[in-house]
Design a protein around this nucleic acid. Structure first.
Length: 562
RNA sequence: UGGCCUAUGGUGUAAUUGGCAACACACCGGUUUUUGGUACCGACAUUCCAGGUUCGAGUCCUGGUAGGCCAACCA
């Protein structure tokens, strides 16, 4: 057993240190805590991969906890989508939990804090409170209601809960320090009145706990050992600890293990955006056809596009974890799906931009069935039959009347190999009135049949073309995608809105011809269209109208040099 | 008139914690090839700057500089 020495990332180092300092391994417990207010995207996959990855590494449970404290933005639809996405990625959570499950417990602890003089009801407007809050460089001022008596606070808080007051009239605040250099410690809100139905608790509650109060205590109730989140929550850590330490005093016998929050940098991907709010805008404005549009960086979009869970997990793994701002080149993601599909996707032939080739010395009515290897990378993938006849389609760009030596494809007087078939030589071509080539006349060498073992079939030629027999071709719609944004970092411009960089030509619908074996392809099946790229069968596809998505093109050194 | 965080090739992550800067992607060049794919080989860095400690510094110290986050009854 050769142990590959893999260096630990900083989170693993923290855990190893805790373990070394006496934390029992059984205490390790993690969580992934999405708010069900949108669809998961590739950025979330990093957070998912970190916490679930740690769970796998240390054989520790990982909870899926929905952070559902804002009924105004959350919906069951999102809960369902998130569960589907996490499962699809191949992760199994220990318990499915909801912050809303803890509303009563949270309320009781809040009452306790009030009794201890550590929280108070404020009756100012949000504007007034904002003014008193100060700025990062100026200390804040105490609220005039900061010193209300415990009795009055208790009464008010209870009446808030009972629904006696309108939204915006009262809030519960933690009494900490209005002069703290950390804005979050300047008497943060714990509860606000929200008279909205919650997707799980319905109308049971009209006061809802805020993130900071909820999140840490949910971690605590679940006895999460390491609460991992992204960097922007770093300033929240002080408050996280304040709440945690105060509550700990009330309940350490029931919940002996205080959790700790640690932060890592979130994932950014070039040529796209990673903000639920902005992604929602693309959906709402019809820039894309929904959250699962194959151009979206959402998990559901990537899934529909044809990405495999393995490719995404590999991607996340090689991206790594650190605390510095980063932008990952989308080329790495593309590499990961090619790497996966190269080994697993069967090869087929499809012509996206066809021009007809007539093999003039091939008998009019003759048809033969050729044997084609499904996947040269996989011995067990077998072979399939591909029909051949006198008339075939090839790609327009695979023929030129004349071209230099660097052009390995078909040109007049030159011979190329047809993949799995024969060698052909172009003799002439016909054009329409505009000079477009409409047909190419070739002759074939009958002795060069692929797999026949003849000396002729082993001739070396520079070019091998993919093709589809005209008579047997199956029509299919191919959707080819370009990046959704033309700028490398569309939402990083201070002076420009990300919408300005939307690529108007990110979707191209192509009427293509594919080989007949694809007639029976099922939704989700992935193929390599030889020489073109990887494609999958889209959800819209039917046996009558096949629809393929282009997942990603093959690496193309020729295109680069042109 | 602040607090906190972060600086290693084009990108991202490493560096046995003070000992030959490594891996992957991208880019460039080559070999193989019935995919201009795959595979394989090669090229690609004065570790943000300036001082200091040390036989030895990406790592420690001092001082700068740059970038990020923090003023929602959002999470």
């Amino acid at each position: 057993m050769s142990e590959e020495k893999k260096s630990l990332n900083f989170l693993e180092q923290i855990i190893e240190e805790d373990l070394a300092n006496g934390m029992p391994k059984e205490n390790l417990r993690f969580r992934f805590p999405p708010e069900p207010n949108g669809y998961l995207h590739i950025g979330h996959t990093k957070a998912i991969g970190i916490s679930f990855g740690l769970g796998e590494r240390y054989n520790a449970p990982v909870n899926l906890r929905f952070d559902d404290t804002n009924p105004a933005k959350e919906e069951q639809e999102y809960v369902d989508a998130i569960k589907k996405d996490v499962s699809w990625l191949g992760y199994q959570w220990d318990q499915e939990l909801y912050s809303s499950d803890y509303f009563q417990e949270l309320y009781d602890w809040a009452v306790q804090l009030i009794k201890d003089g550590k929280a108070y009801v404020d009756s100012q407007t949000s504007e007034e409170m904002r003014e008193q809050k100060g700025t990062p460089t100026e200390v804040g001022k105490n609220s005039p209601f900061r010193d209300r008596s415990v009795e009055e606070n208790l009464d008010l808080f209870n009446r808030m809960k009972e629904g006696e007051f309108e939204e915006g009239t009262y809030v519960l605040r933690a009494k900490i320090d209005m002069a703290s250099p950390n804005m979050l410690m300047r008497d943060p809100l714990m509860y606000r009145i929200l008279k909205k139905a919650h997707h799980r608790t319905g109308n049971d509650w009209v006061i809802y706990p805020m993130y900071d109060w909820t999140h840490g205590e949910s971690d605590y109730l679940e006895q999460i050992s390491h609460s991992l989140c992204s960097l922007e929550f770093k300033p929240h850590r002080e408050l996280y600890n304040w709440f945690r330490d105060n509550v700990y005093e009330y309940s350490k016998s029931d919940f002996p293990n205080p959790p700790k929050q640690r932060e890592f940098s979130r994932l950014n991907l070039s040529y796209t955006i990673m903000s639920k709010r902005k992604l929602l805008k693309l959906v709402e404005e019809g820039i894309v056809n929904g959250w699962d549009d194959p151009r979206m960086p959402t998990i559901s979009g990537l899934r529909r596009r044809g990405y495999t869970p393995a490719s995404i997990r590999n991607f996340i793994e090689t991206v790594g974890v650190s605390k510095r701002e980063n932008v990952i080149d989308v080329a790495l993601l593309e590499f990961k799906i090619r790497e996966d599909l190269n080994k697993t996707a069967n090869r087929v032939m499809g012509v996206l931009d066809p021009v007809k080739v007539v093999i003039t010395n091939y008998p009019e009515d003759k048809e033969e069935v050729l044997i084609a290897e499904n996947n040269p990378e996989d011995e067990n993938s077998g072979t399939r039959m591909v029909p051949f006849s006198r008339e075939i389609y090839i790609e327009k760009e695979d023929f030129r009347e004349e071209a230099n030596k660097k052009f390995f494809r078909l040109k007049l007087g030159k011979e190329v190999r047809l993949k799995n078939a024969y060698f052909i030589t172009a003799n002439s071509c016909t054009k329409d009135a505009d000079g477009n080539i409409t047909e190419i006349q070739c002759t074939y060498d009958p002795l060069t049949k692929s797999g026949s073992g003849t000396e002729e079939s082993k001739r070396k030629v520079k070019g091998t073309l993919h093709w589809v027999s005209v008579k047997h071709a199956v029509k299919a719609e191919v959707r080819a995608y370009d990046r959704l944004f033309l700028d490398e970092a569309p939402d990083a411009h201070k002076d420009k809105d990300f919408m300005e960089f939307v690529n108007p030509d990110s979707l191209e619908k192509i009427e293509a011809f594919v080989e007949p074996s694809l007639q029976t392809a099922k939704i989700g099946d992935r193929f390599q269209f030889q020489r073109l790229g990887y494609f999958n069968v889209d959800d819209d596809s039917t046996p009558e109208n096949l629809v393929f998505n282009k997942i990603v093109g093959l690496r193309d050194n020729w295109a680069k040099k042109k």
